[in-house]
Amino acid sequence: MSRNRVLTGSRAMVEAIAQEMRVDPTVFVMGEDVGPYGGIFSSTTGLLDEFGEERVRDTPISETAFIGAGVGAAMAGMRPIVELMFVDFFGVCMDAIYNLAAKNTYFSGGNSKVPMVLMTATGGGYSDAGQHSQTLHATFAHLPGMKVVAPSNAYDAKGLMTSAIRDDAPVLYMFHKGLQGLAWMAAPEGASTEVPEDPYAIPFGEARVVREGGDVTIVAISMTVHHALAAAEALAKDGVDAEVIDLRSLVPLDREAVLASVRKTGRLVVADEDYRSFGLTAEIIASVAETDPGLLKSAPRRVACPDIPIPYSRPMERFALPDAEKIRAAVQQTLNRAVA
């Protein structure tokens, strides 16, 4: 009988990895500081003790080599889970990701597969500045051949990780630092959730309605789900009943869930911590517009990081990153109301 406990995002991730490692000897973990340290954002805590150094491998600071090696190991029958410590660091190793991992299946006509999980920390909010605070969802989702997931809570963190490990495609598992439940970084209340002990998988491409409402649809992912929920609570006091959708994965993208909600509400706000232009927010709005622009009763709005590097100083970083108040204001605009 499966028991539920409240877990942090990081503990939920680690539990999924450990459970898969116990039953599948091809699963192993490598990355920087994943061994004794347990991952800078606690994504591998305790794995070294249980599985040893052969299967939980600290790497040199050589992302091109070890992500490339992950691709090769995956093609040779393993299921590597490779950590890119900060997503911002993709700059030194993108070729292994988007030209190898993402394309080898296609280039082999489906005869080769790359069942690799690349897990990576995203997000700002703690003044780590522009090389350590980006979200970059769209950078990866834009490039064909990779599945891209971004959990907003511990329950999803476990179920999406289990699916990622079992998937035969390369999966980019983008976890927000601020949702990990780290002792040294504040997390929103809803990030830690009840998590069943038994293994379970959450299918990719299934968005979740986290709050039902009839007046406006707020589409969010990862950290912005929490901002959206807080905004919805504030809006409820103004008599606005907002529906909040957590996409959970960017690739595949559950456009149907968005359309179903917008059919009901007729109003749309999309929130993403990634940069504003050419991103997830535009993709969602385009999906609605090209399906049936008549669904929208007012112009859709997006809440995202303006097109600037993420600033270091707190007032400027707060200005740049999405929050509940910015989402609330955007919703008010879709309702053609003056913002208080």
Partner: peptide, 24 residues
């Protein structure tokens, strides 16, 4: 003006720069 912070210090008067990315 507070945009860069401790890992991103630039002083062109003395040709000094740094980066938070290893090896860069």
């Amino acid at each position: 003006g507070g945009r860069g912070g401790h890992m991103h210090l630039f002083d062109p008067a003395v040709n000094f720069a740094c980066s938070g990315i290893i090896g860069e």
